[in-house]
Computed example of a mutant assay.
Amino acid sequence: MTTSLFSETEERQELRTQVAKLAGKYGREWFTAKARAGEKTTELWLELGKNGYLGINVPEEYGGGGGGIGDIAAVCEELAAQGCPMLLMVVSPAICGTVITKYGTEAQKQRWLPGLCDGTSTMAFAITEPDAGTNTHNITTTARRDGDEWVLSGQKIWISGVDEADHVLVVARTEDARTGKVKPVLLVVPTDAKGFEFHHIPVEMVSPEKQFQVFIDDVRLPADALVGDENGGLVQLFAGLNPERIMAASFSTGLARYALRQATAYAKERTVFKAPIGSHQAIAHPLAQSHIEIEMARLMTQKAAALYDDGDEAAAGEAANMAKYAAAEAACDAVDRAVQTHGGYGASQEYGMAGLLVAVRVGRIAPVSREMILNFVAMHSLGLPKSY
C-alpha cells in the first residue's frame, strides 16, 4: 500500500518509543532544575549512550548502531518532546560523528567514535566567528603547516558545550586561502591544549549546555589532527552542516510537541465560564493549527533525513534547509500559543512555558538564520538572482 511510504519503519517507531520512555524517567522538571542550578544532565547523557542511542548513526564497528541521520534525528526529537532537549546531540554524534565517519582515517575513527557513541566523550563543533557571522567565506581562523605539525590561530563564538567536551572540531582556512574563496580544513583540537581558551557567554535560555567564545592562540596540533583532505573543500564541511540542519529541525519539532501537549492538557482541565477553555475555538483553533504546522515540519525533516541517508546531497541540502525553517516557525508559534493558553500561568516557572520562548526563538537564528535559508531557497529552488 502506498500509505506505507509515509510511515516510519517499525524499528524507527520502536526507537522513538524507547527514547521517549527513557527521557520520561527524567522529565522537564528534572531538566530545568539541573539547568537552573548550573548542573549538567550527565546521567541522562550516559544512559542514552549505554542504550546505544547516542551513536545510533555511527557504524557498528566503531561502537555505533549502524543507522542513519534519520535515526539520530528521531532520538533528538523524542528527547525534546519529553522536555529534555539535548543540544549536544546536534553537535557531538550528528555533526562530528558524521564528519569523522565519512572523512576520518581508520585510526581517527577508532580513536574518537567509540567515546562519542557510549557518551564517555563529547566533541564540540566550532565554525561561527565574531566578524564572519553567517558568511563562512569570511572566517579568518587560520591553520598553517609547520613541519609535521599544524599551527592554529583565531577566534570562534557561540560554541556550544565546550566546557564538557574533550575535543572541538574546528573549521579553519589554510594560510594561502586567506583571500578569495574559503578553503576550509577541519581539525580536532583538545580542549586542554596550550593556547586554547574559552569564555562563557551568559544567555537568557534555560539550558544545562552553555555557550562560549573561543580563543585559539598558536595552538600546535599533530598532523593527524586534520580530518579529511586538506584540499577537500566545502564538500567535507557540508557533510556536517546538512545533518546539523536536520537535527536542529528535530530539536525544534520536539520542543513544539512538548509545548503543544502541555497546552492541550491544560486546555482540557482549566475551566472558565462553566466549560473547559479548550471548548472555545479561540483556544482550540490555534492549538489545532500548531498540530498541523508541526506535522508538516516533521514530514519535511523526515524527507531531508531520508534524502541525506540515500546519498542525494543536493536534494538533501534543499530539504534540510526547508525543514529547519519550517520547524523553527512551527516551534515559535506553538510555544507562543502554549503561553497564551496558560494565561497568567504561562509566565510562571511552575508550568514552564515561558522558559521555552528563548529556546525555540533561537531556532530562527541558529545554526543558520531564517533569512539565509530564504536566500538559499530563492536562489537554488526558484532560480532567482543572488541577493548577497
Rank of each mutant, 00 (worst) to 15 (best):
R261Q: 14
V189R: 05
G254C: 05
I373W: 01
V368H: 08
W158D: 13
E8A: 12
Y308E: 05
Y26W: 14
G67D: 05
V368Q: 13
G52R: 08
A304Y: 01
T3Q: 11
A265C: 05
I277A: 02
Y308K: 05
K156N: 11
V203S: 12
A326C: 03
A334D: 03
E77G: 01
R298L: 13
M322T: 07
T301F: 00
A327M: 02
A73P: 00
V335Q: 03
A107S: 11
A328H: 02
D146R: 13
L113H: 00
I100P: 00
N57A: 12
D333E: 11
V170T: 10
V339L: 12
D166R: 13
K102P: 00
G228D: 04
E204Q: 14
V162T: 13
N135S: 11
Q302T: 10
E204V: 08
C332S: 05
V188Q: 00
E8R: 14
P208W: 10
T41H: 09
S160W: 08
I127L: 15
Q281F: 04
V151H: 03
S279A: 08
E39Q: 15
I294Y: 07
G147T: 07
E78A: 10
W158L: 13
A267W: 03
T141H: 02
Y103I: 00
E47L: 10
G67N: 09
G68N: 06
P243C: 10
G346C: 05
R36H: 13
L15E: 03
G27Q: 10
T122M: 15
L260N: 06
C332L: 09
G232P: 01
L46C: 01
T301D: 06
F31T: 02
G363T: 08
P286G: 07
G355N: 14
F273L: 15
I373E: 04
Y388L: 11
G64D: 07
A315Q: 15
I201F: 05
V91L: 12
E61I: 03
E318L: 15
A81N: 09
F238D: 10
A81P: 02
Y388N: 12
E293F: 08
R111L: 06
V185W: 02
L48N: 06
G343W: 01
V362L: 15
W158P: 00
